[in-house]
Simulated scan of single mutants.
Amino acid sequence: MMNPISTPGAFTELDKFMFEAWGYIIIPNVLTADEVKDCLEASVRLHEAAGTRGWAQVGKGFETEPALERLIDHPAVLPKVRALYGDRFILQSAWCTKQPAFGGNGSWHQDGSGAYDFSKLGYPIPLIQLRASFLLTDQSVPRTGNMELIPGSHRSQAPLPQSVRKSGDDVPIGHVICAEAGSVLLFHNAVWHRTYAHDGDYDRYTMHYIYSPPWVRCSDRFDNDKAFLERTTPVRRYLMGQFERPDAPFGAGYPVELESE
């Protein structure tokens, strides 16, 4: 099976071509075995504290779990995010997802906002949510809770048929991502995707970090935790949206004589 394999760090010209063509890239060997273990244990604690049952996701775990905080600006991933967005972007949300043992397929969807369909913004659907998914359990073979994506579907002018979405049927061009724990899947919000079946007798965990333009509202929190902001690094505070905007207050660029009118 073909795979858009990248390497940690810089966003290369080949990365750019693969991302534009397929809508995603896979970065193997981002986390060490010890880092995977620490992040997996942190993920389990988050879900136990939240009392989740079945398929579930818990947000803003970076506020209480140092192992997950360190992934916010991981040097294997952040340069690629910066290459796609420029210098101004935020961590819009961070979701720790759990697919339970013996879980079935999820439904086909594109990422976005339930309040506003990103497809209304134009064609091709713009990059509003760039997702970096850190695999915390092994997914090197199919049916281990993998992500399944449709390559190039972020460029399709035709939506995936409603009948397929409603039924959850397989599609002949679906690509089941097979990668070891510690790998990262970086993908565009407009790529059609779903959670693939999980036949294992253990829960599958993935930590998702979603990066967006600075004007997008956060979805895993209403406000940033003040204690977290005080103790974290300057770069991570920036990614929380705690920076001065050159256009604030809005209208500040107008001549002084017009401001009093």
Rank of each mutant, 00 (worst) to 15 (best):
T52A: 00
G106V: 00
K80H: 08
A179Y: 05
A94G: 14
A49W: 11
A179V: 01
L91M: 11
R245G: 15
Q157T: 09
P151H: 02
G112K: 03
T7M: 10
R237H: 06
A197D: 15
V81K: 02
V141A: 13
V256P: 13
S93F: 09
S140R: 08
Q242H: 14
P161A: 07
E259R: 12
M147N: 07
R165S: 06
E244D: 15
D170I: 05
Y202V: 11
E148A: 05
N29M: 05
K166P: 03
G23R: 00
W215S: 11
S133K: 08
D225I: 04
G9P: 02
Q110A: 12
S219R: 13
D73K: 09
D87M: 08
Y196S: 12
Y209H: 06
A252P: 10
E13D: 12
K226G: 14
F11I: 06
A115L: 15
K98T: 10
C218S: 15
T137V: 09
D223G: 09
A248K: 14
I177R: 01
F243Y: 10
M240R: 07
A10W: 10
G51K: 04
Q57E: 15
R245W: 15
P213G: 15
I128R: 01
H47A: 04
D225E: 12
S6N: 01
L135I: 12
R131L: 15
A115G: 13
I125V: 14
C178Q: 06
P124M: 06
H47T: 08
V30N: 00
L239E: 03
D117A: 14
F11D: 04
Y205G: 07
E261F: 14
I27W: 01
L121D: 13
W55K: 14
P246Q: 13
A83W: 01
T232N: 04
V235W: 11
G106P: 04
W215N: 14
Q139P: 05
P126S: 01
F89C: 03
L121R: 12
L127W: 03
S119N: 11
I177W: 07
Y123D: 10
E65R: 03
G51Q: 02
P124N: 06
A94Y: 00
V216I: 14
P249C: 05
V77K: 02
F19D: 01
Y123R: 01
E65M: 05
S107N: 14
L258N: 13
A179P: 09
P124G: 02
L68K: 02
R237P: 06
K166F: 10
L185M: 10
F19K: 02
A179R: 02
T232Y: 10
S119T: 11
V256D: 13
L71E: 06
D170K: 08
V36L: 02
H193T: 05
L78W: 08
I90Q: 04
P159E: 07
F19H: 00
W22H: 00
Y24T: 01
D38Q: 12
Y123P: 05
Y205T: 01
Y254V: 13
K80L: 06
P126Y: 04
K16W: 03
Y209T: 03
Q57M: 15
G54S: 12
G200Y: 09
R217I: 13
L91P: 04
D223W: 14
M1E: 10
S167R: 10
S113N: 15
R236A: 11
P75W: 06
R70Y: 05
I5H: 00
D225S: 11
S6C: 04
R245P: 09
I72R: 04
Q139N: 10
